[in-house]
């Protein structure tokens, strides 16, 4: 296919063909990551700027490594959360980056829509590394990539996403991505965290996890932000864990050898029991590699050729 996209902002507006093309490219990138010499000359002289308004060592490092393997130079701008409101606005920062002649900007920001906001201003490509509660497309793509490695073609498979769906960009992006790949998605969690307005994602919703588990090929637990309890969204970790925590016993209800995924970091003993978490740990190493491969694929697709050249 001919790649035409300038930015990676959300899965919602991507075509299935684009998603498959990204996954195909990531497969090639993963082979390169397995080599003894993980360095390509592909993007020599290109510059990738990591602009992170939220701390996330994992995601930032993954993007950095992806850029470096492809031969690009990387710069990280970490903006302390406290200075967001009083300091330079995102608009001003964007103008500065523009002047630095970056080729790709990776943005992590606490406000939903900030990635599109930045992309609308900037000539360089923008990759959304998480914007507020809106989207985290690279996480969804790496999740899908990992699922495909385990299950092959995903069409017709069943995925349950359990937890704080309301506040989760990972859940939103995964719901879009999985649906586009023909997966049956069910969101599960208490009514306060899986409220009626999530119907807009077009997937199944339930407040009874146990009824959603039979037949599930994959169960994805979301990280529970412990401060939600203080906001009154659920009464206690004990009750949450009792109703929605993934345990070995509960997972038997799927009736299959289901895969458990977690975007991390995990609250052991809350959304996921220790023994289930150990199984997930085994996958984490693979997820990290897949994350770098997906991000290499995206950076390559965005700036690997010069799509802007007009003959």
């Amino acid at each position: 296919m001919k790649w035409q996209r300038k930015d990676i902002l959300a899965i919602e507006d991507m075509s299935v063909e684009e998603i498959r093309h990204i996954l195909h490219t990531a497969k090639v990138m993963k082979e390169i990551l397995m080599r003894p010499i993980k360095k390509l000359p592909t993007l020599k002289g290109k510059s990738v700027v990591n602009l992170f308004y939220e701390a996330s060592t994992r995601t930032r490092t993954s993007f950095e490594m992806a850029a470096k393997v492809l031969g690009a130079d990387t710069t990280s701008i970490a903006v302390a959360q406290s200075s967001v409101s009083k300091g330079e606005s995102l608009y001003d920062t964007a103008k500065t980056i523009q002047a630095m002649r970056a080729d790709v900007v990776i943005l992590r920001h606490p406000s939903s829509g900030s990635a599109k906001f930045l992309a609308d201003i900037l000539d360089p490509a923008v990759i959304n590394a998480g914007d507020g509660q809106h989207a985290h497309p690279t996480q969804a793509l790496l999740d899908i990539f990992t699922m495909q490695e385990h299950l092959g073609e995903l069409e017709g498979k069943n995925v349950v996403i359990v937890g704080d769906v309301l506040h989760s960009r990972v859940a939103r992006s995964n719901a879009w991505c999985l649906q586009k790949m023909g997966v049956n998605v069910t969101l599960a969690g208490p009514p306060t965290l899986v409220p009626a307005e999530m119907e807009g994602l077009g997937v199944n919703m339930t407040h009874d996890l146990d009824s959603a588990l039979p037949g599930a090929d994959i169960v994805m637990a979301l990280r529970l932000q412990l401060e939600r309890q203080k906001s009154g969204l659920f009464p206690s970790l004990r009750e949450y864990s009792h109703l929605y925590g993934l345990t070995t016993e509960r997972l038997k209800k799927t009736g299959k050898q289901s895969i458990v995924l977690h975007p991390g970091p995990m609250n052991r003993g809350v959304e996921i029991s220790d023994d289930v978490a150990n199984g997930v740990d085994a996958l984490i190493e693979r997820q990290v590699t897949n994350g770098v491969a997906i991000r290499m694929a995206l950076i390559y697709l965005l700036i690997g050729g010069s799509g802007n050249v007009v003959a």
């Binding site: 296919m1 001919k2 790649w3 093309h21 490219t25 090639v28 990138m29 390169i32 390509l40 000359p41 592909t42 492809l70 390559y300 697709l301 690997g304 050729g305 010069s306 799509g307 050249v309 007009v310 003959a311």
Partner: peptide
């Protein structure tokens, strides 16, 4: 990925 003319061609070559 090793080509030295990537930035001078106007499509993104598909990698295999």
């Amino acid at each position: 990925l090793y080509r030295d003319d990537l930035s001078t061609i106007d499509i993104h070559p598909v990698v295999h």
